[in-house]
């Protein structure tokens, strides 16, 4: 079983559209949407949930107004400016880090610390195969932990049903959710764009995958917007030890397909669809998975 994570560093490079196309082209895969903060893969794969579970993670402090004597201990200890003085004192749940320091040191034991529901995760069926995905509640924290959970559930499912491949739509950036999505994966596939920002962000992503020692593949979407920059990215990426796997031309049909809830490879033999198929075949060949 191989675990492939598709990321982009910078947002808006077409990562989800291309991941969905790979899903359509794959033969025997489980899909996981680990971009839990702004999950969009379901808009193209239209999963039907067969199981849904709450995601409980961490705790949040809450002052019991009956017991609060207004001594201010919590306020002086809180490092996250989450406590508002008053009678009684209150805690802003948005700012609360869930560290429990105030709970432990409150002399009146006036602070409750209930577990927090942070979201929901689903096991679903799509027209291309099974999918694990999640939705973080509004304002909830712990997206890194939800990413780990989605990934683990996808692994369990792939193992139980002997699927060959797990395709993961990864989060943007290089922080906690990306680290949770990529560490220990078989390969990272980075979709970037030929812009100064795209290159800048790609180099940070490559440093991260180097740091965690994960084989990394690069593809440039909308390459024809700036052919020079595409070339620069290829050179810079290969210098960093990544494999450059191909380019996809700018294709307005991708947005048209998205509006209809379709992947571009189902939409027709457009210029982008042809390029994506080629890239998928060569990627599968390099990783030894059946295309």
């Amino acid at each position: 079983m191989k675990e492939i994570v598709i990321i982009s560093g910078k947002g808006g490079t077409g990562k989800t559209s291309i991941t969905a196309s790979f899903a359509a082209l794959s033969k025997d895969a489980v899909f996981a949407d680990c971009d839990v903060d702004a999950a969009d893969l379901h808009l193209l794969l239209q999963p039907l949930a067969i199981k849904s579970m709450p995601f409980i993670s961490g705790n949040v402090a809450r002052i019991n107004e009956q017991k609060c004597s207004g001594c201010g201990t919590c306020n002086s200890l809180c490092r996250f400016d989450a406590v508002q003085p008053g009678t009684p004192y209150t805690i802003n749940p948005t700012d609360c880090e869930g560290c429990g320091v105030c709970v432990h040191f409150c002399p009146e034991q006036a602070i409750e610390f209930p577990p927090q529901r942070c979201g929901e995760w689903f096991q679903s069926e799509t027209r291309f195969g099974p999918m694990i995905h999640a939705a973080l509640d509004i304002g909830a924290e712990n997206s890194g932990k939800l990413v780990s959970l989605v990934r683990q559930e996808a692994r369990n499912l792939a193992e139980a049903n002997q699927h060959e491949l797990i395709l993961i739509d990864g989060p943007p950036g290089i922080g906690c959710p990306v680290i949770a999505a990529t560490t220990g994966a078989h390969a990272v596939f980075v979709i970037t764009e030929p812009t100064c920002s795209g290159k800048h962000d790609l180099l940070r992503v490559l440093e991260l995958t180097e740091h965690f020692d994960i084989p990394t593949y690069i593809c440039v979407n909308k390459w024809d917007i700036n052919p020079d920059m595409t070339q620069q990215i290829k050179i810079a990426g290969e210098e960093k030890g990544a494999t450059f796997i191909g380019t996809i031309p700018y294709d307005q049909q991708i947005t048209k397909a998205q509006i209809e809830g379709k992947t571009i490879v189902e939409w027709g033999d457009t210029i982008a669809a042809i390029a994506i198929k080629e890239i998928w075949n060569s990627f599968c060949e390099q990783l030894g998975i059946a295309s």
Binding site: G11, D37, A38, L136, I138, G139, A140, E141, P171, G173
Partner: peptide
Amino acid sequence: CPPGTSCPMMTAVN
């Protein structure tokens, strides 16, 4: 601000 709607975005807009 950073993208998304979780901790980094909320910290930035707060």
